[in-house]
Write a protein that binds this DNA or RNA. Structure first.
Lengths: 225, 225
DNA sequence: TCAAAAGTGTTCCTTCTACACCCATGT
DNA sequence: ACATGGGTGTAGAAGGAACACTTTTGA
């Protein structure tokens, strides 16, 4: 819906402030019997949940909820791997979860939020690969979906929205072009409210218009909703 | 690389001839012990291959080769499902395979090529879902990758290329715009040869310039190549 | 000479990009 | 009054879409 072509770094503004996005990558490991869940980056989750009779994606939803104490605002299956180095074959299904900053995630067994700027290689090659792939997907989807929605609170300013884009793409964008594109896309609704939070002009608060596009983009609809 | 925006049906040419694309959707079913392969549409494959110590994607490559007698020109993992209706949990990893029409696929246990125009619902809901999803992905990737390459012979005419696009998208395109876009994209190389095959002007034969983009688009690089 | 597919340019319009200043507020 | 982030317009470039006729060949 929203088209975001790559824009070369702008001169007029260079400040890419990181708004600490709540992104989480989770792996479901299946050994043929049990499903084990692990959140990538931050600490590994001890959460090990036995197989239940539910769809895979639902298991991911549930495991992430149990791990973070909160429901993911958006969940997308990424890819399925089978890292079988000598040992018995294992199947690992990877997921990307996005959270609204509204939600109070329980500290739990380590904070799941993952700094996009993070570059320290993980011990596990697979986790590193999934993490990088998640970022590729997230960046790509910024261009043709409203996925950024799921990383923002219910109402937000255009600057917040732009910062979200910039921190995911790690690239500064032109303010006027960005705002024009977003408004033109028609997915934003001006709530009429203003946010005043500093010694400067208050910002208009927007919300997203509906969000019925989750299922339709490059990912099959989740089964058995 | 190649941008193909949707174009409304053109008046000047309405003939969308189906060039019988060699597309195959395969499922790997894992019950925890064995992997069972099935090609979707056409007859189900009897091919049942026990677990080997190899990466999942490699298993898919091999199974498709064993089923068709030929290597897929392109293989992409689609999505992973877990259809567990009462029975024991099963994990089904779906793949999309593309073949060059050059290759002589063994008739084997039923022709795997799948008519894109086909609309008869399959008995199996999951297979139907995967089939539709494969088409969504294929269509989407036409717009930003050279994926059509994998459905064409080594050299081809611009008309062949256009027919491939048209039959996948099920939509006629303007000849001049199509050719201009393709040429401008820089991925085509004029071989200098001509193909004469009828009582009409011979067509220039092209080939694709390199094809090093397979791994870079929305799919992680296949592990352990 | 006819049929059949190959090949070729231009115009219009939409969208992207680059770019700089005033506005509203709190201190 | 000043510092801070909010908010705005325009002109040039590039790319997409619509559109029809000539060319080359085999029969």
């Amino acid at each position: 819906m929203i088209h975001t072509r790559s824009q070369p770094p702008s001169q007029s503004q260079v400040s890419v402030t990181e708004p600490s996005l709540r992104v989480c990558v989770a792996l479901l490991r299946w050994n043929g019997e049990d499903l084990e869940a692990a959140a990538v980056h931050g600490d590994h989750l001890p959460a090990t949940i036995p197989t239940a009779d539910e769809a895979l994606d639902q298991t991911a939803v549930r495991i992430i909820r149990e791990s973070t104490g909160v429901d993911a605002h958006y969940l997308e299956q990424l890819y399925t791997f089978s890292p079988s180095q000598g040992g018995p074959r294992q199947i690992v299904i990877s997921y990307l979860a996005l959270f609204s900053p509204d939600t109070a995630m329980s500290p739990g067994p380590g904070n799941l939020t993952w700094s996009l700027a993070e570059t320290t290689p993980l011990e596990d090659d697979l986790e590193q690969l999934v993490l990088e792939y998640a970022l590729v997907r997230l960046r790509a989807k910024l261009g043709y979906t409203n996925i950024a929605f799921y990383l923002l609170p219910a109402t937000f300013t255009l600057s917040q929205l732009q910062q979200t884009y910039e921190s995911i793409l790690n690239q500064a964008m032109d303010k006027r072009n960005f705002r024009r594109r977003m408004i033109a896309s028609g997915i934003l609704v001006d709530t009429g409210e203003k946010r005043r939070e500093g010694s400067h002009r208050p910002a208009a608060l927007y919300r997203f218009r509906e969000h019925d596009d989750q299922a339709s983009y490059l990912t099959p609809p989740l089964l058995a909703t």
